Simulated scan of single mutants.
Amino acid sequence: MDKLVPAPPASEPPFFTTTQELSFEDALAHASSVLRCAAVTAQAAIDQLEGDSRTLVISVLHLVDMASVMVDRSVECMQA
């Protein structure tokens, strides 16, 4: 069984933060961009893997695609 990576100690600052000035629309647009990057990364990993590892990354890609569709739809609703 694979080991789980422990969460960083609570005293460490977060790796990624945002600001109060970031608008809802900009946050959704950024999330959409991040999801596109995640999809490209997963697709590249799929091409390098076999077996259960490949199947797991394909599952992650499917989840990223579903989230991307929902975020993109949210952006469309904001523009309407």
Rank of each mutant, 00 (worst) to 15 (best):
Met1Gly: 10
Asp2Arg: 14
Lys3His: 12
Lys3Arg: 12
Lys3Gln: 10
Lys3Met: 05
Lys3Phe: 15
Leu4Val: 02
Val5Gln: 04
Val5His: 10
Pro6Phe: 14
Pro6Met: 11
Ala7Lys: 13
Ala7Leu: 15
Pro8Ser: 09
Pro8Ile: 07
Pro9Trp: 14
Ala10Pro: 07
Ala10Phe: 14
Ala10Glu: 04
Ser11Tyr: 12
Ser11Ile: 00
Glu12Pro: 02
Glu12Val: 02
Pro13Val: 03
Pro14Arg: 08
Pro14Cys: 08
Pro14Glu: 07
Pro14Gln: 12
Pro14Gly: 01
Phe15Thr: 01
Phe15Ile: 03
Phe16Met: 10
Thr17Cys: 03
Thr17Pro: 00
Thr18Ala: 14
Thr19Lys: 14
Thr19Arg: 13
Thr19Glu: 14
Gln20Glu: 03
Glu21Ile: 01
Glu21Arg: 12
Glu21Phe: 06
Leu22Met: 09
Leu22Thr: 01
Leu22Pro: 00
Leu22Ala: 04
Phe24Ser: 06
Phe24Cys: 07
Phe24Trp: 13
Glu25Gly: 00
Glu25Arg: 05
Asp26Lys: 15
Asp26Ala: 13
Ala27Trp: 08
Leu28Cys: 01
Leu28Ile: 00
Leu28Pro: 00
His30Cys: 10
Ala31Asn: 05
Ala31Gly: 01
Ala31Val: 01
Ala31Tyr: 04
Ser32Cys: 05
Ser32Gln: 12
Ser32Ala: 13
Ser32Trp: 08
Ser32Asp: 14
Ser33Cys: 08
Ser33Ile: 05
Ser33Thr: 02
Val34Thr: 09
Leu35Met: 04
Leu35Ile: 01
Ala38Leu: 11
Ala39Glu: 05
Ala39Phe: 13
Val40Met: 11
Thr41Asn: 09
Thr41Cys: 06
Ala42Asp: 01
Ala44Ser: 04
Ala45Met: 04
Ala45Gln: 05
Ala45Ile: 00
Ile46Ala: 06
Ile46Gly: 04
Asp47Ser: 07
Asp47Met: 10
Asp47Arg: 06
Gln48His: 12
Glu50His: 11
Gly51Trp: 09
Asp52Lys: 03
Asp52Trp: 04
Ser53Trp: 09
Arg54Asn: 08
Arg54Tyr: 02
Arg54Gly: 00
Thr55Arg: 15
Thr55Leu: 14
Thr55Gln: 15
Leu56Lys: 03
Leu56Gln: 07
Leu56Ser: 07
Leu56Ala: 12
Val57Tyr: 08
Val57Gly: 02
Ser59Met: 10
Val60Arg: 12
Val60Thr: 02
Val60Trp: 09
His62Val: 03
Leu63Gln: 11
Leu63Phe: 06
Val64Met: 06
Val64Gly: 07
Val64Asn: 04
Asp65Glu: 15
Asp65Lys: 15
Met66Glu: 12
Val69Tyr: 09
Met70Asp: 06
Val71Ser: 03
Val71Asp: 02
Val71Asn: 02
Asp72Gln: 01
Asp72Trp: 04
Asp72Pro: 00
Asp72Lys: 00
Arg73Ala: 15
Arg73Pro: 02
Arg73Leu: 14
Ser74Asp: 04
Val75His: 08
Val75Lys: 07
Glu76Ser: 07
Glu76Ile: 03
Glu76Lys: 10
Cys77Asn: 05
Gln79Ala: 05
Gln79Asn: 07
Gln79Phe: 10
Ala80Leu: 11
